[in-house]
């Protein structure tokens, strides 16, 4: 018999290293004489999309086109140390460092434009590669402004340093600001349990994440979907078996992960409750994406067949044993 159930899992997860551990990032930006920029960051792109969003942040703050940003990341010969891509920290910490560097660049460009167009004009940088005066029709090409900086030997490099190190908690009470920010999430899973075999199929998962601000929807959703896949694998498949201290599941035919056919429809919902200390209100979503999935699935199993699984994975044997015990 196949029985369906729905379960909910919620979590919050801290962003950054926390607990007064050193947690900083740095970025520098150089304006080329054609008005494009080079962004140097120590932040390592591990497939999460940091190269993309850090370029977006730089472009957004300065007011230039995303395509006019060249990013060089995690090159120990050139880029400033920005700490590891871990603890779901880089959007927040490197994002802030990049934002600060970009603000310096924006100010440098506007000051030079003012020098060339005349004082007292309310200038802004447009997406059309021009700096415009708000009240008059005047404008000047960013490329010309950039070239002037180089020709006149004026500074054309901006730098940002963001320190995310938090004060520690009270050693006695554990109370205090352990972390600078927290991401919240809830996953809802719909499952179908085969009471004959103990097989659990996940039919749908809805995943809502409060990320503060979505810098890039595609990479955010990609991270959520990947996290759900990993969470599902953890709940139902992943099992490191050992015998006499020797690992038996030493290959991917025995250490199982979800295949395409095991994956459900995933409905990602992004919630934006701005984090005041984050770049444009953003927090992080790296690890949060993975956390509520297993609890949601296990709760859905309970809803379906009234059994509680406390040891992962909720594999065939565990589910069937619990069903037999319950007398299903």
């Amino acid at each position: 018999m196949k029985k369906r159930g729905v379960g909910v899992g919620s979590m919050f997860y801290a962003i950054g290293y926390g607990f007064n551990r050193p947690d900083h990032a740095a970025a520098s930006i150089e304006i080329a004489d054609d008005g494009t920029i080079t962004l140097l960051t120590g932040c390592c792109e591990i497939g999460q999309g940091s190269d993309t969003i850090l370029s977006q942040i730089a472009a957004e703050v300065i007011g230039i086109d995303y395509d006019d940003v060249q990013i060089i990341s995690a090159d120990t010969a050139f880029t400033p140390d920005s700490g590891a891509s871990t603890a779901s920290r880089q959007t927040f910490v490197s994002g802030n460092a990049v934002k600060m560097a970009a603000e310096e660049i924006r100010d440098i460009l506007l000051a030079q434009a003012e020098d060339m167009l005349g004082e007292g004009k309310d200038l802004f940088i447009g997406a059309d590669h021009k700096i415009h005066a708000r009240d008059t029709e005047e404008s000047i090409e960013i490329a010309d402004v950039a070239k002037a900086l180089h020709d006149k030997g004026k500074p054309f490099i901006g730098f940002g340093w963001f320190n995310n190190t938090t004060p520690d908690v009270d050693p006695e009470t554990n109370q205090g600001d352990a972390y600078a920010s927290y991401t919240f999430a809830t996953h809802v899973a719909e499952v179908e349990v085969d009471t004959e075999t103990g097989q659990v199929s996940v039919l749908r998962i809805a995943a809502a994440h409060d990320v503060g601000k979505v810098i890039n929807l595609d990479t955010c959703e990609g991270q959520v979907e990947g996290g759900v896949a990993q969470g599902l694998g953890w709940a139902l498949f992943e099992d490191v078996e050992s015998e006499d201290s020797v690992v038996q599941s030493d290959n991917f035919d025995t250490f199982l992960m979800p295949t395409v056919l095991d994956m459900p429809e995933i409905i990602s919902i992004m919630v934006e409750d701005p984090e005041i200390n984050g770049p444009f209100g953003a927090k992080g979503v790296g690890e949060p994406a993975l956390i509520p999935t297993a609890p949601a699935i296990l709760n859905a199993i309970y809803d379906a067949v009234g059994i509680r699984i406390y040891d992962l994975p909720a594999n065939l044997e565990r589910v069937k044993a619990a069903l037999e015990e319950k007398g299903a």
Binding site: Q199, L236, D253, L256, T259, V260, D262, N315, L316
Partner: peptide, 12 residues
């Protein structure tokens, strides 16, 4: 077939 997953699964 009773398998641990929907594909690439050795029959239990």
């Amino acid at each position: 077939k009773v398998g641990r997953r929907r594909a690439l699964s050795i029959s239990r």
